[in-house]
C-alpha cells in the first residue's frame, strides 16, 4: 500500500526493513527471542501456553488481547491438527499480524494541493521530535513542508521546534508563547498556501486525554483546519510513547473520539519497550500504526509495516 509513495519500491527497500530489524534487535533478543526457544522443541508442551501468555503480557500486549491471541492459536492448533511448535509459531505470527492489518492507507499518499497533518498526544510522548523527523522524511520525497508551532503552552516548545526547523531547513510558523494556538494554525494554513507548500504539519501542546477543556481546544484546532482546507486535517496522528502500558488504549480511544485520529506513531522503540499496546489499539479501535520512532535523531523514523514489524520481531 505504500508502493505509490516510494515509486514502486517496496517499503522494506525504500525505508523500513533494515532499520526496523536493527532497532528491534534488542526487542527480538530479549522478548521474541524467548518465543523462538519456546517454539523450538519437537512437540507442543502444555506449559507452552502459559509461557506464551507471560511473554505477551510482559510486552504490554494487555490481558484481554493476550488471552484472545493465545486462545485463538490454541484453537487453530487443535483444529488444524498441528503438532510442531514451529507451526504454532507461524500461526501466532499470522494472528498477531492480523490485528495490525487491513486499515485504510495513509491519506498523505493522495494527491491534493495541500495535505494537512495534525499531531496530537499526551505530554512528553515525542510529538515535537517526531514532527521534525516527519518533515524531513517528506522533504526527502521532494515535498515542500511547513510546520506550525501550535504548542504555545509549554515553556520553550516554540524554540524547540524552531531549532529543528533550522536543522532541517523547514519553515516554522509560530506565534507568541501563550498566544491562541488556533491563530497559529490559521496563519500556518495561509502561509502554506502562499508558499505553495505540499504538506503542513501542526504541532500541538501535549495534553492528557482526560482533560475536557484541553480536548475541546484540540477539537477547535481540528475544525479550524477543516474550515480552511477541504477535508483537513487529512491525517491526525497520535504520538504514543512506546514505553506506555495499558493507558495507551485509553489515550487512543479518547483522541479518536475527539479528533478522529487516523493513525498512531509509536516512539521510543529504541529502548527495551515492546510497544505491545499497539495490538489492542488495532484490535479494539481499528487505528493503524503509521510510523515508529527509534531514537532522538532526525532520521530515527521508520514506516510501520505490519508484516515487516511482526516478522522482524520473530526473526532469529
Amino acid at each position: 500500500m505504500f508502493k505509490k509513495l516510494f515509486g514502486g519500491k517496496s517499503i522494506t527497500e525504500a525505508l523500513g526493513g533494515a532499520k526496523i530489524k536493527e532497532s528491534l534487535t534488542r526487542t527480538r533478543n530479549s522478548f521474541f527471542g524467548q518465543i523462538n526457544t519456546l517454539f523450538g522443541g519437537e512437540t507442543i508442551q502444555p506449559d507452552l501456553w502459559d509461557d506464551l501468555e507471560a511473554l505477551l503480557i510482559q510486552a504490554d500486549v494487555g490481558v484481554d488481547t493476550t488471552t484472545e491471541l493465545v486462545e485463538k492459536v490454541k484453537d487453530r492448533v487443535q483444529l488444524e491438527g498441528i503438532t510442531r511448535p514451529a507451526q504454532a509459531q507461524a500461526i501466532l505470527q499470522q494472528e498477531m499480524q492480523k490485528l495490525l492489518e487491513g486499515f485504510a492507507p495513509s491519506a498523505v499518499e493522495e494527491y491534493r494541493i495541500l495535505t494537512v497533518i495534525l499531531i496530537v498526544g499526551v505530554n512528553g510522548s515525542g510529538k515535537t521530535t517526531t514532527i521534525a523527523k516527519l518533515a524531513k522524511l517528506y522533504q526527502q520525497q521532494g515535498k515542500k513542508v511547513v510546520i506550525a508551532a501550535a504548542d504555545t503552552f509549554r515553556a520553550a516548545a516554540i524554540d524547540q521546534l524552531k531549532v529543528w526547523g533550522e536543522r532541517i531547513d523547514c519553515p516554522v510558523v509560530a506565534g507568541q508563547p501563550d498566544s491562541d494556538p488556533g491563530a497559529v494554525v490559521y496563519d500556518a494554513l495561509k502561509s502554506s498556501f502562499a508558499r505553495k507548500a505540499n504538506i503542513l504539519i501542526i504541532d500541538t501542546a501535549g495534553r492528557l486525554h482526560t482533560k475536557y477543556n484541553l480536548m475541546k481546544e484540540l477539537e477547535k484546532l481540528h475544525s479550524i483546519a477543516s474550515k480552511q482546507v477541504h477535508a483537513a486535517p487529512h491525517e491526525t496522528l497520535l504520538v504514543l510513547d512506546g514505553t506506555t502500558g495499558q493507558n495507551a488504549i485509553s489515550q487512543a480511544k479518547s483522541f479518536k473520539e475527539s479528533v478522529q485520529i487516523t493513525g498512531v506513531i509509536l516512539t521510543k522503540l529504541d529502548g527495551t519497550s515492546k510497544g505491545g499496546a499497539v495490538f489492542a489499539i488495532g484490535k479494539e479501535l481499528g487505528v493503524p500504526v503509521r510510523f515508529i520512532g527509534t531514537g532522538e535523531g532526525v532520521d530515527d523514523l521508520t514506516l510501520f509495516d505490519p508484516p515487516t514489524f511482526v516478522s522482524g520481531l520473530f526473526a532469529v
Binding site: I57, D60, D241, T243, S273
Partner: peptide, 12 residues
C-alpha cells in the same frame, strides 16, 4: 517516572 509506564518500569 511517567505514571503511564508499562511493564518496562522494572527494567528502567
Amino acid at each position: 517516572a511517567d505514571s503511564m509506564t508499562g511493564q518496562e518500569a522494572v527494567k528502567v
